[in-house]
Amino acid sequence: MFFRWIERNPFFMAAWISLVIAVAGLIEIVPDFAKAARPVEGLKPYTVLELAGKEVYKKDNCIACHSQLIRPFKSETDRYGDFSVSGEYAYDRPFLWGSKRTGPDLHRVGRYRTTVWHEAHMWNPPAVVPGSIMPAYRHMWKNAADIETAYAEAVTVKNAFHTPYGPGIRKGKEAWEKYKPTVLAQARKVAEEMKGTEGVSKEEVLKMIDSGKVPEIVALIAYLNRLK
């Protein structure tokens, strides 16, 4: 009898436990993999600067309070824009849907907020949104975003998962040194749209970029503007 077989030996039991646990995952998750990973038409991979911004988003754990998933209800599409579809997330590693909205959804924040808005808001949220309970993130003006790691990530996903990056994204220090000016130029473009805050002027931000470092805030804004 089958059940006796389970009771007979702790290791049979362990095997049976594992099987019972595994079966749900096998059927629910595995078969969908190829389909769900397909990008929507026209989706571009994140630029290196945007990836660095995504790292800032992860580092300061914005996911604790902000979602990136618009559900298919009128109240949500009215507030945040078109509902999210699977293929839009094809290049999101990890996914950043979040599970709690202490603040609003950000999946299409790039459609309705601007560089200047983010700049003023991240410096002092209640000044832009009265009553806001979000903390200010002023250290993002001082800290440099890790663009080299972002580049390493781009190289990795290009080689391992065939994310369509151009030929400039290649393994090794040399390739990175060659690519770095492109990232700095992207950063400069964002910084030029900025206005400067009471604490850090626009010139200081630009100066930091010219010295080869991208302030976290610039990378983050590049990333947020990309969310459309």
């Binding site: 009898m1 089958f2 059940f3 019972v20 079966v23 059927i27 629910e28 078969p31």
Partner: peptide, 28 residues
């Protein structure tokens, strides 16, 4: 097509496991 197969697999596996669970009660 694939979707249907998965739904079938899902329901059948659940069915089998439910039957086994009841079988276990009986056995006990």
């Amino acid at each position: 097509m694939r979707e249907e197969w998965r739904i079938i697999a899902y329901v059948v596996t659940s069915g089998i496991l439910v039957v086994m669970l009841y079988g276990y009660i009986l056995y006990l």
